[in-house]
Amino acid sequence: MRYYSIVALLGLVALTGCGADTKSGEVKVQGTVSIDGQPVPTGSISFVAVDKSTPTGGGVIKEGNFTGYTMQGEKKVLIVGNKIVGQVKLYDTPDSGMRDKYESIVPPVYNAVQLTPLTVTIDGPRDDLSFELDSKAK
């Protein structure tokens, strides 16, 4: 019984330590994202650790600008971008409200970990990140 108590206590200490270490390397990142020279209207940006040692971080893109948080290290950058192309009904009824209809404007190559050509090293807070995408990228 004593053995199991010690193992449980060590497990609890290890888990607590992991939580503290995870937060210690998180930094603020800011920058811009454009496609074919135009700001990405809305979307998201993710920073995935190349060595898979830290959680994925990121933020929201609005009018080509983003602010987010990520852990330090070498990252693959994933970007999803959309634009509003009209409106659609919320329900199939005559008095239905409307919502914006979005269309993806970023090629799949930029939002797949195995394919993305985008990488960046995060070694502290950054406010100078800039990603220029090509709509014809494959």
Rank of each mutant, 00 (worst) to 15 (best):
S130P: 03
T56R: 11
Q87F: 09
P117S: 10
K136D: 10
I35Q: 09
I79Q: 00
Q72F: 13
T56S: 15
N65W: 04
G58P: 07
Q38P: 00
F66N: 12
V33R: 02
G43N: 05
L90N: 03
L115Q: 02
F47I: 11
L118F: 12
Y4I: 00
Q72S: 08
I79H: 03
G59K: 06
D127N: 14
T42P: 01
L15Q: 08
K28P: 00
Q114V: 04
L90S: 07
K76A: 06
G57T: 15
D134R: 05
L90K: 15
S46N: 13
F47Y: 14
I45F: 02
R99E: 10
F131R: 13
I61W: 13
T67K: 06
S104Y: 01
A8G: 01
T116H: 05
L115W: 12
V50N: 04
K28E: 10
L9R: 06
V109D: 02
G73W: 05
D51A: 06
V7L: 13
G124M: 14
D95G: 00
L115M: 11
C18H: 13
D134W: 15
L78V: 05
Q87S: 03
D134M: 10
L90R: 13
Y91V: 02
A14F: 05
K101P: 01
G68H: 12
I45K: 10
N65V: 15
L129T: 06
Q30M: 15
L90H: 02
K138T: 07
G57M: 07
V109H: 02
G11W: 04
E74K: 15
A112D: 08
F47A: 04
F131V: 14
F47Q: 03
G73Y: 06
V85D: 04
G25Q: 04
C18S: 05
E26P: 04
S24N: 06
T116I: 08
A14R: 00
D36A: 13
G73C: 03
G59A: 12
S34D: 11
K52G: 11
V120Q: 04
K28R: 05
K89C: 00
S34G: 10
A14Y: 01
P39A: 08
S96H: 05
S104R: 09
G58Y: 11
A112Y: 03
V77P: 09
E74H: 14
D36N: 15
I45Y: 10
I84Q: 02
E26C: 01
L9C: 08
G58N: 11
V7A: 09
G37I: 14
V50I: 09
K52I: 01
S104N: 15
Y91W: 07
Q87R: 03
G124V: 09
V120S: 00
Q72W: 11
G19M: 10
Q38I: 01
L12V: 15
